[in-house]
Simulated scan of single mutants.
Amino acid sequence: MVFVEMFEICSVLVVIMIITDEIKITEIEDFDLNDGYIIDGFPYDGYVGSISAESMVRTSQFKFVGFMDSKSFPPVSIIREGIANYPINIFVNEKLKVAVFLSHLHLPESFSKEIAKSILQFAKKHNCRLIISSMKITGAKISKEFNAVGSTKNARDTIKKLGMDIALNATMPGIPGVLLVEGRFSNQDVIVLLFSQKSGKNTDLEYGAKLCLTIGMLVPNLPCNIKLIEGETVKVEKMIKQTQKESKDLYDVIYR
């Protein structure tokens, strides 16, 4: 069940909440995403999605507008430049009409369905045209560096117009998989970018930068300064891996 509640704090801050059975999205200020885009920046098998999303936020004019939380999430705070944050933050660039859901933590798969449904509800509330996700794919042939799959005919037509191949057969776990199937039956355009990493030391860094550029093909006017992005991905990877390392013992205790 989903509902929206509005109230005022100190006569200044308006907080808007989107709540599903397990997940709560809190928006701390107003913003316009009409006909815009949502980028899924959750980490999956590796850090490519998070590296790409974090680099995008750092190299463009995104602002912090809210966060996602649940009573079942691990009790942890992520410190960014001396400021405490929830594990999942939302950043928006109103000029580009882009929102980024950004997390550095590998949350258990049991949260995937509710997180995806919350993102879809957010997209519906703000009338967003497209949700963009990504993941590393195994057990399926990738004809190009990036293939893609879309939730609707319109999404698949967009993929074809960009000259990308559509993956015809694949198993899609986690948040990307739920976004696709739920998007299909709610008529929400979702595109999941698929890549098959080669073995190597710096593949997360390499594909993080390339994913930024590929998302730039889907989002009009998204800045794609490859030198700037590549410089940021090095910093971001270190930060994300440090977060993962510091949170590992906590996860072992809570979810073992």
Rank of each mutant, 00 (worst) to 15 (best):
I240Q: 05
Y207A: 05
I51S: 06
D249H: 15
V92P: 01
V192Q: 02
K24A: 10
K238V: 15
Y251T: 05
N85Y: 10
L250D: 13
R129C: 04
K198F: 11
S196G: 13
F101I: 11
K144F: 11
I254W: 05
V192C: 08
H106Q: 13
L120S: 01
R184L: 12
K136H: 14
G139W: 03
I83Q: 11
F73L: 09
S112F: 02
L162Q: 06
S70F: 07
K141Y: 12
Q242W: 15
V14A: 08
S55W: 05
D30S: 15
M239S: 14
S55E: 08
T243E: 09
A123Q: 04
Y44M: 03
D32P: 05
Y255M: 06
N202E: 14
K24V: 11
M17Y: 02
Q197V: 10
C224N: 01
G82M: 10
S72A: 08
E54N: 00
Y255N: 08
F111L: 05
F64V: 02
G231Q: 13
I90D: 05
V4L: 07
E94S: 10
V98P: 01
A123L: 07
I229H: 00
P43M: 00
L130C: 00
I39K: 01
V15N: 00
A116N: 03
F62Y: 11
I137E: 01
